[in-house]
Design a protein around this nucleic acid. Structure first.
Length: 876
RNA sequence: GCCGGGGUGGCGGAAUGGUAGACGCUACGGACUUAAAAUCCGUUGGGGGAAACCCCGUGUGGGUUCGAGUCCCAUCCCCGGCACCA
């Protein structure tokens, strides 16, 4: 072995060693278990440091728990169904399967290069029949329980993906992946009844203290519970009644008109003949509008009078019925009573169309606004007059229930999960359509319904209906009930279904008879620490909670929540060449627009603003280039690739760089300087041990801690302080401060050796140091560990050696540095014995010249002594 | 507008109500070297001072406290999410 730190020599060696010894394989059975999980990725081929950040964090935790003697499950897999594989197939003419498995192999290579150690015997790949069989199985179970159902409705249609999308997958009116404006289509599709679980999904957020508040807040908002009442307004001259939902039923006396959503089915029925043309035109126009148009920021209210009137059941008044697109068909009943006096939107509408406004809650005397939405006494409201909002609500609901007009009602914004997709690369829906028997589930014993291998690009290309519908060899089948000719469902399941339960499959990945064995799942579940991106705050994390609750209800797993701890890591940014620029009058103009637009940098941005945003101007080909840190991505080409980096620098260096640069929840900018710093640090570690190697070999690590004094005692104290801090920091995922503590201890080791020779306490410090470094920089630690006989068998891995215990005695020092304040300002310091009495402390403090100077001529009012720390002498 | 999180050196960032700026980066000075790199030593919040030391300093204004980056009230700004949900 060379005496220089050479990562290229030692890293592959230890990676092989860990593989061969199976050291980090999951073994059930210890008293304590720890399930560390990173969100499994879409297999996209070569990985960059951005991908590796959360895997590195998970690896640190998993290795640490292993050192602590836990049974550790740290698995990995691939969310392998989905759009990119189809796109690649269309682009390169390879089959989605070949492309996917090629990428998996490449990604795995990157992971091992970084020394990230998974139990590969538990690898899960969602596009294999062994996995998606159980997707189908769970779907059938849900169907059996009435939770999977088919419904015709207006759905989100992504014109680029050529498929429908779930509500959660539409962001700002655009497809979450394609970015295309979503259209509304009326289609019959499969849904999962997640709304049945709305209340539990909401309430159980309380049981998740180790989740970020932010994510919980987002889920609460998405579930969107509101309490109110649902009640009927009769339509004049019709049998029909219009049912409305309101959170403010107490304001019913102020309902001066009604509004139906343009999609409302009663609209055609009640519209007066002379208003029909106008109403039809409005409805047609609404349908053409995209969701974005409809929800424009500065939207002006539009609407059309239907010519019909409703009777306000509270006061018998006739009120006009309008239709307007500010009322959404998807929420509540798709119709509202409009109370302009207490609702800003209704006020705006009334004002625009000259409708009556009646206040039913008295605003304060100084109120200057329009609609008054706060609390106050009811007015113009008959028997509610004088009551405040809460009592008025209660009373009116009682009244409604008595009269049979309506009742109290809770509403959620959460919609059922539309789960059909008109795509090829996914799990086939295990359902059969029979002309005689209707919809018939595929019998469990016939699972999996295999996805046929399509190789022809034209077979895969999305055409607005499922590609499988063009393949009779797939869809032609017989009805399991009547044996007659029948047709398979040709849609596939949303890939989010795949990721909603994969963490359970890891507990028992090769089970042929069930998705997983409850006993095994119960040993590992719940996941103790889940690590992933904030972008899944709603989608994946809500679906997974739903699935766990469903499977819990089926008696398949005890856990009611899948992820006990959740951590959302910040992204990795890379310095990015945005392109050549010209500077005119202190403003920056980009010659090429594509990257500028992508990074949302203003054309003509001032030099000052550019600098504030962290940008730099550098000379490059074609003149001055604009550089800026941006999230690492393939398309920007700013990713530091794992393979080349590890081969040039080393995995441990990359790991330290990632972990030390910033707190893990913050975004970090990858820089050469940061890499340099990590290299320097690891080299210093190496040199400290290498230079003392011979001496360390000769020294025992037996010593009496109580007998230590001076420098030895100080080192022993520092060692145990660090041990405590590093352990706590890892548990709290504060890797940056853990590494900082290790750097500090290293500085202390260097200081020690300036003064003293290698000693037993020093040898112990080195030993613990290697153990503490091991989760962060496992290769160098394993190498250094193997240099010595630690009395536990030389061949033993550092990950088999137990994490050292903190000696509480060590934390108590003989002496401490007393801080002396005069009236709250530090005026002096003194080293005093730990056992010094308060009186002694006060005496010592007064001997400090500078303290004396500040006391002179002053009268001592009070003295505050914080034992072991500080004395504050308050003077007047 | 509502919800969540923040404002600390040139930069990333540390600080159970008790020494603000740990650790690192950058920069500067020095040592070693024929030289460079690497490495090592030192300085690095602002101001004053020969020094001891003093004054100021955690977005802003107030408060609680012997003592506030930390707690309370108000306010400004930044980031993220949601947003016609009745």
């Amino acid at each position: 072995m060379s005496d220089k730190y050479n990562p290229h020599e030692l890293e592959p060696k230890w990676q092989r060693y860990w593989q061969e010894t199976g050291l980090l394989k999951a073994k059930e059975g210890s008293e304590k278990k720890s399930y560390i999980l990173v969100m499994f990725p879409y297999p996209s081929g070569d990985l960059h440091m951005g991908h590796l950040k959360n895997y590195t964090m998970g690896d640190v935790l998993a290795r640490f728990r292993t050192q602590q003697g836990y049974s550790v499950l740290h698995p990995f897999g691939w969310d392998a169904f989905g759009l990119p594989a189809e796109n690649a197939a269309l682009k390169f003419g390879v089959s989605p399967a070949d492309w996917t498995f090629g990428n998996i192999a490449q990604s795995k290579e990157s992971l091992s290069l970084m020394g990230i150690q998974y139990d590969w015997s538990r690898e899960v790949t969602t596009c294999t029949p062994e996995y998606y069989k159980w997707n189908q199985w769970i779907f059938l179970k849900m169907y059996e329980k009435g939770l999977a159902y088919r419904k015709k409705s207006y759905v989100n249609w992504d014109p680029v993906e050529q498929s429908v999308l779930a509500n959660e997958q539409v962001i700002d009116g655009r497809g979450w992946r394609s970015g295309a404006l979503v259209e509304k289509r009326e289609l019959e599709q499969w849904y999962l009844k997640i709304t049945d679980y709305a209340e539990r999904l909401l309430n159980d957020l309380e049981k998740l203290p180790r989740w970020p508040e932010k994510v919980k807040a987002m889920q609460r908002a998405w579930i969107g519970k509101s309490q109110g009442a649902e009640f009927d307004f009769p339509v004049k001259g019709h049998d029909a009644k219009i049912r409305v939902f309101s959170t403010r039923p107490d304001t019913i006396f102020g309902a001066t008109f009604m509004v139906l959503a343009p999609e409302h089915p009663l609209l055609a029925e009640i519209t007066a003949p002379d208003r029909k043309a106008e109403v039809d035109a409005y409805v047609a126009a609404t349908r053409l509008k995209s969701e974005v148009d409809r929800q424009m920021e500065d939207r002006e209210k539009t609407g059309v009078f239907t010519g019909a009137y409703a009777i306000n059941p509270a006061n018998g008044k006739e009120i006009p019925i309008w239709t307007a697109d500010y009322v959404l068909y998807g929420y509540g009943t798709g119709a509202i009573m409009a109370v302009p006096g207490q609702d800003e939107r209704d006020w705006e509408f009334a004002e625009r169309f000259g409708l009556e406004i009646v206040r039913t809650v008295e605003p304060p005397a100084d109120f200057k606004g329009k609609a008054y939405t706060e609390d106050g006494p009811a007015i113009n409201s008959d028997f509610l007059n004088g009551l405040h909002v809460e009592e008025a609500k209660k009373k009116i609901i009682e009244w409604m229930e008595e009269k049979g007009i309506g009742e109290g009602k809770v509403n959620y914004r959460l919609r059922d999960w539309l789960i059909s997709r008109q795509r090829y690369w996914g799990t086939p829906v295990p359902m059969i359509h029979c002309e005689a028997c209707g919809i018939v589930p595929v019998p469990y014993e016939q699972l999996p319904v295999m996805l046929p291998t399509l190789r022809d690009v034209e077979d895969i290309r999305p055409k607005g209906k499922s590609p499988l519908a063009a393949h009779p060899e797939f869809y032609e089948t017989t009805c399991p009930q009547c044996g007659g000719k029948a047709r398979r469902d040709t849609d596939t399941l949303d890939t989010f279904m795949d990721s909603s339960w994969y963490y359970l499959r890891y507990a028992d990945p090769h089970n042929q008879n069930a998705p997983f064995d409850p006993e095994k799942a119960n040993f590992w579940m719940p996941v103790d620490q889940y690590i992933g991106g904030i972008e899944h705050a709603i989608l994946h994390l809500l679906y997974s909670r739903f699935f766990t609750k469903f499977l819990h209800d089926q008696g398949m797993v005890q856990a009611e929540e899948p992820f006990e701890g959740l951590f959302t890591q910040g992204m990795v940014m890379g310095w990015t060449d945005v392109g050549p620029v010209e500077i005119i009058d202190g403003r920056i103009y980009f010659q090429d627009d594509t990257r500028r637009a992508k990074l949302e940098i203003e054309q003509g941005i001032s030099l000052e603003d550019a600098q504030k945003s962290g940008a730099e101007l550098r000379e490059g080909p074609g003149g001055t280039h604009f550089w800026k840190p941006a999230v690492m991505s393939k398309s920007l080409g700013n990713g530091v690739m794992v393979g080349p980096f590890v081969r040039q620098q080393g995995a441990d260096i990359a790991r330290i760089t990632i972990l030390f640069a910033a707190p893990p929840e913050n975004e970090m900018v990858w820089t050469d300087e940061g890499v340099q710093g990590s290299w320097r640090y690891l080299n210093r570690v190496w040199r400290r041990v290498a230079e003392d190697r011979a001496e360390l070999e000769k020294t025992s690590d037996q010593f009496e801690s109580a007998a230590l004094s001076g420098t030895d005692k100080a080192l022993y104290q520092k060692l145990h302080q660090t041990l405590k801090k590093v352990g706590e920091d890892i548990e709290n995922l504060r890797f940056n401060t853990a590494v900082a503590a290790l750097m500090e201890l290293l500085n202390a080791l260097y200081d020690y050796r300036k003064e003293k020779a290698v000693s037993p306490v020093y040898r112990t410090a080195i030993r613990y140091y290697i153990q503490m470094l091991a989760p962060f920089a496992p290769h160098i630690a394993e190498e250094l560990w193997h240099w010595f006989d630690w009395g536990q068998g030389k061949a033993q891995s550092v990950f088999e050696a137990r994490w050292p215990e903190v000696d509480p005695e060590a934390l108590l020092a003989d002496s401490f540095e007393l801080v002396v304040q005069v009236s709250g300002k530090v005026r002096g310091k003194a080293t005093v014995p730990a056992e010094a009495s308060e009186d002694e402390i006060k005496r010592i403090a007064r001997e400090i010249p500078n303290v004396q100077a500040h006391l002179e001529g002053k009268q001592v009012v009070k003295e505050i002594y914080v034992p072991g720390k500080l004395l504050n002498i308050v003077v007047r």
